[in-house]
Every structure is written in structure tokens, then in C-alpha cells.
Design a protein around this nucleic acid. Structure first.
Lengths: 132, 132
DNA sequence: CATGAAGGTTCTAGCCGCTATAGGGTCAAG
DNA sequence: CTTGACCCTATAGCGGCTAGAACCTTCATG
């Protein structure tokens, strides 16, 4: 119980790279509970869970800053849930906005792709379209 | 005819920032035709057109590297058009792939947003879902 | 012709989220 | 005690800009 693992073991257990874990530490997300005399970072299950949390949140496209906020909120049982909601909501809005942009882009590229049947650049409608 | 303009005038004419133009130069996209004795960059209509080309291509989400290739191709009337096509085609595929990812993300975030009606973090389904 | 504002120059560093490299030190097994 | 796998810190790089410092040029005005 409360076993200590090294960064490499934590990395394997969470499918993260050790360098990334250290980077998260520098960003204030996850710290080792302690270190060996030689300076090796040591973690417990708690940090493993925390790292899994981070990975899930990152998978949602949230910034490290947002993930940090979520971790802070998760640590406080009595914190109001509204802040969590709004982080998720804002992310959803960002994603929807990017979706719109990309859909527009897809249409433009698709149109461009269709329109060129030339052999050389001289007659290329794509180049023409970019030059106007 | 063949009037020379400074970087600030070029910037205004193309709605680009001067720093960005210099950055494009450092990236090998657009150079001034000449300089004043004092070292000011001077451009002509040709560079203005080139910069507009760059902006349009960037608007399609293409990397500066791709834009550079397109510029090179556009300069050579006899270049085969296939390379242009494939740059556009690959970009379209990238966009489609990102669209898929973002649509998936939207679904996940939407589900998450729906599921939390709690007051505090203790009962928050979002936090729970991230912690599992 | 001198002055001063507006605009130009180069260089360096910062943003995000890592990733890679160099040059070392530590740990546990044999 | 040696070996080899692992770990440490520090620094730089990616893309596509953006911001700032410290300085220089240009040109219209008095």
C-alpha cells in the first residue's frame, strides 16, 4: 500500500513520456510526493490518478491552464461546480467555432481541388485563384 | 510605374503587419527588390501580389513551407500542375481528419456539459468523469 | 538647414505543449 | 564492484508569429 514508483514506471502506467511528466511538473500540474536521496522523483497512486485526469482533460483539448484549474477545483469538494461547467462550456464553444472555420475551409479546398484539370502551372486554376 | 514602396506601405496595402512581412522574408517567402541607402526595404507591385498570394494560401491553412512550394511552382509556367494539386489535396485530407477529431470532441464535450447539474464539485459528474 | 515625429532597422525573447539533446549522476542486479 | 538501465538538470528547437529594446533614416516643417 502507498507504494512509491519512479517516473519511468509512472510513465509506463499512464502511457505518458517521462519528459512530459516533468514538463507538467514545471507547469505546476503534478509533483512527486518525495524524492530519493539521489534525487529521483517518487510518485504514488494519487499522482497516477492525477496524471490520468490530466490526460483525459487534455484529450478534450483543454489548455494546461484549464487543466490546472480543473485539478484545483477537483481538490476542493466544496468548490462550486459552476466553474467546472464554464470551463467545459467555453471549450465547447471554441471547438464549435473551429469546426465552423474548418468546414468553411473544407468547402474552399474541395472547390479548388475540383477546378484544376490543367497540365502545367500556366493553366492551373488553383494558382490562378490564389493570384487572382 | 514600378513604384517603390516601403514595408509600412506594403503592410497597409495588404493588411499585414510589417513584422510579419519581415518574418516571411526570414522564412524565404518574400524579399524586397532593393533597399534605400539607409537600409529601408523597398517593394514593388510584384511583391505586393506575392504577399496577397501568401495570405490567400495561409487562409487555406497551408504551412509556410507549402506556401513556399506553391510560390516556387507559380513562378515556373511550365511546372507540372500535379504538385500544386497534391499540396491542395493533402491539405484537404488534413482538414478532413481534423474535422473528424473535432466532431468527436464536440460530442464528448456536449455529453459532458449535459450531465452535470450538481452544486459542488463533490457531486460534479464532469469531475467524476475525468477522474473515473 | 536644423529639428522632430513617424517610421524604419536588427536583435532577442516569449507564446504553447511538448520533444530532443548533451553531459552527467543513481540504482539494483549479478 | 561493475554494469547497464534508468534518472537528473539545463538548454534549444518546432511553427507562426508577436512584443520589446535600442538605435537609425526619412521627410515635412519652421
Amino acid at each position: 500500500m502507498d507504494a512509491r514508483i519512479t517516473i519511468g514506471q509512472l510513465a509506463k502506467a499512464t502511457d505518458t513520456k517521462a519528459v512530459t511528466i516533468r514538463y507538467y511538473e514545471s507547469a505546476g500540474l503534478i509533483s512527486p510526493v518525495t524524492r530519493t536521496q539521489g534525487g529521483y522523483r517518487l510518485y504514488t497512486d494519487r499522482e497516477r490518478d492525477r496524471l490520468i485526469f490530466v490526460k483525459r482533460a487534455r484529450h478534450l483539448g483543454l489548455s494546461l491552464e484549464d487543466v490546472k484549474s480543473l485539478l484545483g477545483l477537483a481538490d476542493d469538494e466544496n468548490a462550486p461546480c459552476g466553474q467546472v461547467d464554464s470551463i467545459i462550456h467555453e471549450q465547447l464553444e471554441r471547438i464549435r467555432s473551429r469546426l465552423k472555420d474548418l468546414q468553411q475551409l473544407e468547402r474552399e479546398l474541395d472547390r479548388l481541388e475540383q477546378c484544376c484539370q490543367a497540365d502545367t502551372v500556366a493553366d492551373c486554376k488553383i494558382i490562378e485563384s490564389l493570384s487572382r
